[in-house]
């Protein structure tokens, strides 16, 4: 068996998710090759070999100078036709899923997104993520070449060094594919983001208004964290959607998530469950957030949150 791993990178910066895909590909048994798109990614060949890529196929093309779902997907489709792998694996990130969907459409092959377990064979038996992680599905995949992504963070990347040969691979891309290549980019300002913050103070419908988030902001600032919220909050227009935690918002993984006035609906929980510890502050001791949290305070968040901030300041002697 041979497996081709589609490597994700951003203008040459290797996405750590790619190493998860390589690690998962190794576990399928058989020879693992990697595919890098664009000359900027050439430099990653050594890291890919260290993670088990016996051959790194490097594609160079003007249309691959920046990310473009169609140019990338078409390149993968052509690589599949040229190399005839038994399977193609990428990581289930935004780009990973988009590129494999593009390749699958072009090859008229099935594509199974966000797999957590793969039983390889003639027909594969796969476990995959549904509902953003609240539910799983077992399915079969029947195809000449199997296209899958592995759910992000479901595999821990590990090394398995090989000598790693490098081979150029030519693709023929229609100039019209420039139509979906990134044409402009506004770089993100540096600083802690919701997805990477070590501490998140989350507010839900229980907070009651946009103004009432001020004490949550104060507590977050005091602890070097950021404020998050539930969809009830964004739907009410109290906060921007960029603050939303959950299935259709951001997945957070802080050391501590302080969830204030949030009931803990399953779609919110899947975004918060990777937090190392969770503290729920809620008036309802039966709330899902409370029963699932590591710690809880039962009470009115409008009184409890300022009291915590005051206690921190008192201990700091401020």
């Amino acid at each position: 068996m041979s497996v081709l791993v589609v490597v994700e990178h951003d203008r040459g910066a290797l996405a750590p998710a790619s190493l998860e895909a390589l690690t998962a590909a190794r576990s399928l048994g058989g020879e693992v090759h990697a595919l890098t798109l664009g000359a900027a990614a050439d430099a990653s060949a050594a890291v890919l070999a260290a993670h088990g890529a016996a051959v790194v196929h490097q594609v160079h093309h003007d249309l691959l100078a920046d990310y473009g779902p169609e140019a990338w997907g078409e390149s993968v489709a052509q690589a599949v036709r040229a190399l005839q792998p038994d399977a193609v694996v990428a990581c289930g990130t935004d780009r990973g899923n988009e590129v494999l969907a593009q390749a699958a459409a072009r090859l008229d092959l099935p594509f199974v997104a966000n797999c957590t377990e793969i039983g390889a064979g003639d027909t594969w038996t796969i476990t995959r993520v549904r509902w953003g992680g609240s539910l799983l599905e077992q399915c079969t995949l029947t195809a000449a070449t199997k296209l899958v992504t592995v759910a992000h963070h479901s595999v821990e990347a590990s090394e398995s060094p090989t000598a790693g040969a490098v081979q150029p691979l030519a693709v023929d891309l229609d100039p019209s594919l420039a139509r979906t290549v990134v044409c402009e980019r506004v770089e993100r300002a540096a600083g802690v983001t919701l997805g990477t913050a070590p501490l998140v103070v989350g507010g839900g419908r229980g907070v009651g208004s946009a103004e009432a988030f001020a004490p949550l902001e104060e507590l977050a600032t005091e602890l070097g964290g950021v404020v998050g919220c539930s969809r009830a909050v964004t739907n009410n227009g109290w906060r921007n959607h960029t603050d939303q935690v959950g299935q259709t918002g951001t997945r957070i993984a802080p050391d501590l998530y302080i969830a204030c006035g949030i009931s803990g609906a399953i779609q919110h929980w899947v975004g918060a469950m990777a937090s190392k510890k969770i503290l729920a502050i809620n008036t309802d001791r039966e709330a899902n957030m409370v029963t699932k949290a590591d710690y809880a305070v039962i009470g009115d968040l409008h009184k409890v949150v300022p009291a915590i901030t005051a206690e921190i300041r008192r201990r700091r002697g401020g």
Binding site: T125, T127, S134, T140, V290, K292, Y295, V297, A307
Partner: peptide
């Protein structure tokens, strides 16, 4: 070529919630 066999519950970690107290 993709066919569902069955839905499954995701593994749920069961936590014993530590109550830190009530109110302020």
């Amino acid at each position: 070529g993709q066919q569902m066999i069955t839905l499954l519950q995701a593994q749920e970690q069961v936590t014993q919630t530590v109550l830190l107290g009530e109110g302020v």
